[in-house]
Each structure stands twice: as C-alpha cells, then as structure tokens.
Amino acid sequence: MRNLISLLFVGGLVFLLLVLTLQAPFAEGPMLVGKGILQQGTEETGTANLVTSVVLGYRGYDTLGELSILFTAALALGVVLGRRRPEAPRDLEAGLVLRASSDLLFPLLLVVGLYIILHGHLTPGGGFQGGVILAAAFFLPVLARPSQRISHAGLMALEALAGAAFIIIGLLAMRHGGQFLQPLLDKGQLGSLLSGGTLPLLYIAVGVKVGAELAGLLVRLGDAEADS
C-alpha cells in the first residue's frame, strides 16, 4: 500500500515536471540576469571565465555560505565520529602497486590541483575543482600507508585560516569604502594570470579550504572504518 502511494507520488511528480518543462521556454528563456552578466562581466570583474565572475563576484556571498556549509559538515562529522582511540588497530599497508603509484601521482596531482586553482579565472576550473584534486593528492598517500596520519589539528587550522582569509579579503573592501566582498586591486589585462583583482586570491583561499576540508573528511571517515 505504502509502496503504491509512493510510486503514484513519484509518477505524478515526474509527469508534472515533464509537462512543465516541455511548456517552458527551453533554451529561449528570458535569461535577463545572464545577458547582463555576459555583457558587463568581463569589464566589471576582469576575469575571462565568466562563471568565475559569477561564483566569486556577483554571487561571491553564496560562495561564502557554501564554504561555511563544508566547514559545518566537517565540524559535525567530527562531533559524530569523535576522537580516535590511540590503541585502535590500523589498516595494513597497501601493496606495492598502490604505494608506488601514490608516490608517483602525489606531485603530479599537487601540480595539477594548484594549476587549476590559479587559472580559475581564465580557464574552466577553479578553487572547488582544484581543491578536490588537492584533497585527492593528500588522501592517496593515506590510503597507501595507513600508518602515516595527517594531523587533524593541522587541517583544522588550515581550514580556519583559509576561511578567515576569504572573509578578511571581503572585509578589507569594506575598509576601503566599498561593500563586503567588493573586488579590490587592479583588474589587469584580460586573460593574463595576474588579472581579475582580488578574485584569484579568493579562489586560492577557496582551493586551500576545500582541499583541507575534503582531505579532513576523508581521513576522518577512513579512521572510523579502521576502528570498527
């Protein structure tokens, strides 16, 4: 009975959405805000990648909320899993293939991650994408050699610093008479590495924070497996 009702609900939802989207002005929608940003975005922010100008400029405040959610999730995860007992058994070391390839991949991932973060305002990518790659770079050695740990306290401090840096860059703009998160510095030549004012700095903070947070989440989850 319950299943029947559930299926009816899902069927109704899917049907309704299908009908609505077929009626909606697909690919010809008004796009009022989008057009405005496409016209003014490069001048107002100085970034070649307009998605970046939205993520950090027009909707930079959303990004702050998003960073806070990741931080909150990491914090709440720490509350749930608690501290690891020192005597808890560790996983055995991984085989040669994983160890060797993690040694090989670590510097590569680090470089790729940093490249993607630094070029976030020019090419596809940015702090979130690069941060995830950084997190993978630091988690891979943990998988290969479970006896080597990354310090939780260090990760937490890194996160706190990166998050605080994001907010402080925003507050600095207020000190200079602007609004919170208003871009500062010279916008530079469009398409060059040193362009976009403070936006690349914000993306570095985002990248470090996302990297530290995801690495922390993974390491903590790995710990929880180990002591069960």
Partner: peptide, 14 residues
Amino acid sequence: DPVPQALVLTAIVI
C-alpha cells in the same frame, strides 16, 4: 548563461 553553472557548482558542493 553562466549563472546556472555557478548555482550548480554551489549546489554540488553543498
């Protein structure tokens, strides 16, 4: 439109 792309980036991370 760049706006939905930014929104989805946010939503995915959340």
